[in-house]
Design a protein around this nucleic acid. Structure first.
Lengths: 141, 141
DNA sequence: CGAGTTCAAATCTCGCCGTCCCGACCATCT
DNA sequence: AGATGGTCGGGACGGCGAGATTTGAACTCG
């Protein structure tokens, strides 16, 4: 999903971007405490990218994974809590300082990370199987 | 949940044990391929403990976790498949032949794949965040 | 045989999840 | 100022998914 990058989006822009109709967005807002965009003084919603991600997450729970609203709400609540405990993992660390290592070290490093990542994927796939599979390109050259 | 241990249970016994009404059990049977008790020659259902566990699982998905039937069905299907593939995949492939590589090209290749994989995880986490995280074992060597 | 259990299938109910419609408010353009 | 167009909240409405009930026949067991 690609969309223009800016600070705030109106409800109709978000509807366009996410494919969720505006009135449904308002409805979800009444059902999901995790979705609460800022509002202008006049009351108009101002969505940020964070909110759009939240919407995508909810959408997936409801339409891909087949949760009812109550179940999806619970999932999101817990996901938020988990996020709070454990801030963004792995990715930033990954690049850091990489080109300063010597080759053997790099290899070992990458390898460890890859193992870890595979474990993560395992867990995710078990828990959330309804996902488009990436083509496994064989690195068997 | 405690109940008398025997080989077969009638539908009304199972209804009693699980707290799910008989007609609902029949209904679920029509919705969940993973639930299919044997039948007598006369057509009466004979449930085994395995079936009772399946029912409890479905019940939890529907009533505790808040799945819709379609979602719960998917979960069960996946759970069954996962059960079948006990032997952990992926990791073995990863190790295979890896220690024979040594050139920078390989390294770069792996690294690119890893990046890609991390993107995948990002996407997965957004879509399906309610997941028990694997303990990030910091292999700090 | 008669009481109880089970069956499949049809029909009914109810609540979830939106959907539609409304008058009002606000910002921008002419 | 008036017109246009997006947005607001709220209430009435509706489809359908998930079960509940009913019907009537077949089977089981004493």
């Amino acid at each position: 999903m690609e969309y223009p990058s800016k600070l705030y989006y109106s409800i109709s822009e978000v509807a366009e971007i996410t494919g969720v109709k505006a009135h449904v967005l308002r409805y979800w807002e009444s059902e999901f405490p995790t979705l609460s965009p800022k509002k202008t003084r006049a009351g108009a919603r101002r969505y940020r990218q964070k909110d759009i991600q939240e919407i995508e997450a909810i959408k997936s729970l409801l339409y891909n994974q087949g949760f009812k609203i109550a179940g999806a709400r619970k999932q999101r609540r817990e996901a938020r809590k988990a996020e709070a405990d454990q801030p963004a993992p792995a990715a930033p660390q990954l690049a850091m300082g990489f080109d300063r290592m010597d080759n053997a070290e790099r290899l070992a490093h990458v390898r460890r990370e890859l193992q870890e990542v595979l474990g993560l994927i395992q867990a995710l796939r078990l828990a959330a199987p309804a996902v488009a599979k990436p083509k496994a390109k064989k690195a068997e050259g």
